[in-house]
Amino acid sequence: MPDIISKDGAITSDAWVVVPRPADGESLDIPDQPALIPADLWLAGKEHFEGRDDIGVWFDSHDEPELLEGLVNELKLIAVNFPKFSDGRGYSIGRLLRERFGYQNELRAIGDVLLDQLQFMKRCGFDSYALREDKDASKAARSLTFFSQGYQAATDTDVPLFRRRAS
């Protein structure tokens, strides 16, 4: 189990597991614990999961978050996969889920999640991070706070520096 870092840098853990996309023709095998399933499969079987707060979804980096527009707050946890830390699509997905679709609950970065990208993720709306297991979780708090401010508006602030300077 990877350590789960919260956005203030605290190290936690929980029982959520990521259920991989089943191969063609295979059915989804949901384990007996809180599970994150591919977003499109959740949508396809939505009635089936009605009222369950132990089912969340995950998006891969090439998935379109538009898929769940209007439904995001039915979910307690949404995760976005970074298949490789240098694949930056997940940052856009995070901002869209938060800023465009108004997602309020927990947003988790999963996959190739390293220390030096944590603050970017935080600024794009992620509030928990499944740190890759070989990385030193005790350094996460520092990585989340390298910068005390940014130039731009993003999910964390809607006041870009040029507006803060004006006030």
């Binding site: 830390f85 240098s86 694949d87 930056g88 940052y91 856009s92 901002r95 990208q117 603050q119 970017f120 993720m121 600024r123 794009c124 910068f147 940014g150 130039y151 731009q152 993003a154 870009p160 520096l161 040029f162």
Partner: peptide, 16 residues
């Protein structure tokens, strides 16, 4: 300069 500031450490566009 406005573009420089906006693009500096832009959290969404660091891994294009």
């Amino acid at each position: 300069e406005i573009i420089r500031q906006w693009s500096t450490f832009h959290p969404e566009f660091a891994f294009l």
